[in-house]
Deep mutational scan, measured.
Amino acid sequence: AQEYRALYDYTAQNPDELDLSAGDILEVILEGEDGWWTVERNGQRGFVPGSYLEKL
């Protein structure tokens, strides 16, 4: 798994998404072809927009 940093804040719109704060460090589990990536942070897993992340 790769570590990424959130570039922007994101507020989850659905229960299966995660909130992001700019600067958060996340582990990317799966890069979805639809642009939604499965990530894990502090034991929580959910979808976030891949375009909001940069690889560390």
Rank of each mutant, 00 (worst) to 15 (best):
V28W: 01
L30N: 15
G23K: 01
R5N: 05
D24L: 02
L26F: 05
I29P: 03
D16R: 14
G50V: 08
A22L: 06
T38F: 09
V39D: 00
E17C: 07
T38L: 13
R5S: 06
G23V: 00
L26C: 15
N14M: 10
A12H: 05
N42F: 08
D34L: 05
I25E: 08
I29E: 08
D9Q: 07
P15Y: 07
L26S: 02
T11I: 10
W36L: 14
L30D: 14
L20Q: 00
T11Q: 12
R5I: 11
P49I: 06
Q13H: 10
D16K: 15
W37E: 02
D24Y: 02
R41G: 06
A22H: 05
Y52G: 05
Y10N: 00
R41A: 08
V39N: 00
K55M: 11
G32S: 14
I29S: 06
D16G: 13
Y52K: 05
R45K: 11
E40Y: 07
E27P: 05
L7E: 04
I25C: 11
T11C: 12
K55Q: 11
D34A: 08
L30Q: 14
S51Q: 14
K55E: 12
D16L: 09
S51Y: 12
T38K: 15
Q44R: 12
E17V: 02
E3D: 09
Q44I: 12
L20I: 06
D24C: 04
R45E: 07
F47K: 15
A6P: 00
T38D: 09
R5F: 13
G35C: 03
T11V: 11
G46K: 04
Q44P: 02
A22N: 06
W37R: 03
E31C: 13
G23S: 02
D16M: 13
Q2A: 08
D9E: 07
E54P: 00
D24E: 12
W36D: 02
T38G: 08
G32T: 09
G23L: 01
V39S: 02
Q13V: 10
N14F: 06
E33Q: 14
K55T: 07
W37T: 07
S51D: 13
E31T: 09
E33I: 07
L20H: 00
F47G: 05
L30G: 14
P15K: 12
D19F: 01
T38I: 13
G46M: 02
A12K: 09
D19N: 12
S21Q: 15
K55F: 04
S21E: 14
R5W: 06
G43N: 06
E17A: 03
W36Y: 13
V28A: 07
L7K: 13
E27H: 11
N42Y: 08
E27M: 09
Q13D: 09
W36M: 15
L56Q: 15
Y52I: 14
R45Q: 13
Y8N: 11
I25F: 07
P49F: 02
E17N: 02
G32C: 10
D24N: 03
Q2I: 08
R5C: 04
T38W: 11
Q13N: 10
E40M: 09
T38C: 10
R45V: 11
G46I: 00
A12F: 00
L20S: 01
K55N: 08
L18H: 02
N42Q: 09
E3H: 13
P49Y: 03
R41S: 13
E27A: 13
L56P: 08
K55H: 04
N42C: 10
A22E: 12
G50A: 14
Q2W: 10
V48Y: 00
D9M: 04
P49N: 04
I29V: 13
D34I: 02
G35D: 10
Y10A: 00
G46D: 01
Y8E: 09
W37D: 04
L20V: 12
P15C: 10
L20Y: 02
E40D: 12
R5L: 08
G46C: 02
Y52E: 02
G35K: 06
P15G: 11
R5E: 05
G43W: 02
K55D: 06
A22I: 06
S51W: 14
V48M: 00
E40W: 04
L18I: 10
G32H: 11
V48T: 03
A6V: 12
N14I: 04
L56V: 14
R5D: 01
W37F: 11
A12Y: 00
V28L: 14
L18F: 08
G43F: 05
N14T: 13
I29K: 11
S51I: 11
L30M: 15
D34T: 11
S51H: 09
N42S: 13
A12D: 00
V39C: 13
D34Y: 05
Q44E: 07
D16P: 03
G35M: 04
A6Y: 01
E3W: 06
G46R: 03
P49T: 00
E31V: 14
A1M: 15
S51V: 11
L7Y: 02
Y52H: 08
G50R: 13
T11A: 13
D9L: 01
Y4M: 06
E3Q: 14
A1S: 15
G50K: 03
R45G: 03
P15H: 11
Y8A: 14
F47R: 15
W36T: 10
R45S: 09
R45A: 07
E17Y: 04
E31N: 06
Y52N: 08
Y8I: 08
T11S: 11
L56T: 13
L7A: 06
E33V: 10
S21V: 14
S21H: 13
R45T: 12
E27V: 14
N14C: 10
A12C: 03
E54L: 04
E40L: 11
D19Q: 05
Y8H: 14
A6N: 00
N14S: 12
N42E: 15
Y52M: 10
L30Y: 13
V39Q: 01
A22V: 12
T38E: 14
L7S: 07
V28H: 03
Q2K: 09
I25R: 11
Y10P: 00
D34N: 15
D24S: 04
E54F: 03
L18D: 00
G35L: 03
P15A: 12
K55Y: 05
G46E: 01
D19V: 02
E33S: 13
E54N: 04
V39E: 01
N42H: 11
D24A: 04
Y8C: 11
G43T: 06
I25W: 05
G32D: 10
G32P: 08
L7G: 03
Y10I: 01
N14V: 05
E27I: 15
P49G: 00
Q2M: 15
Y52T: 08
G43A: 08
D9P: 08
G23E: 04
Y10E: 00
E54A: 07
F47A: 13
S21L: 13
D19S: 11
E40A: 12
G32V: 06
E54G: 07
Y4V: 11
S51G: 09
F47Y: 14
S21K: 15
V48R: 00
E54H: 07
E31F: 09
D19I: 01
K55V: 10
D24K: 00
D34F: 06
L18P: 01
T38Y: 12
N14K: 14
G23R: 01
W37G: 02
G35P: 02
G43V: 02
Q2R: 11
Q44K: 14
R41E: 02
E3N: 10
G46P: 01
W36F: 15
A1K: 15
L30F: 14
E17L: 01
V28Y: 04
Q2E: 12
V39H: 00
R41F: 15
I29R: 06
D9Y: 03
L56F: 08
D19G: 08
E17M: 03
E33W: 05
D34S: 12
N14Q: 11
R5G: 03
Y10C: 02
D19K: 03
E17D: 05
Y4T: 05
V48N: 00
P15D: 10
T11E: 14
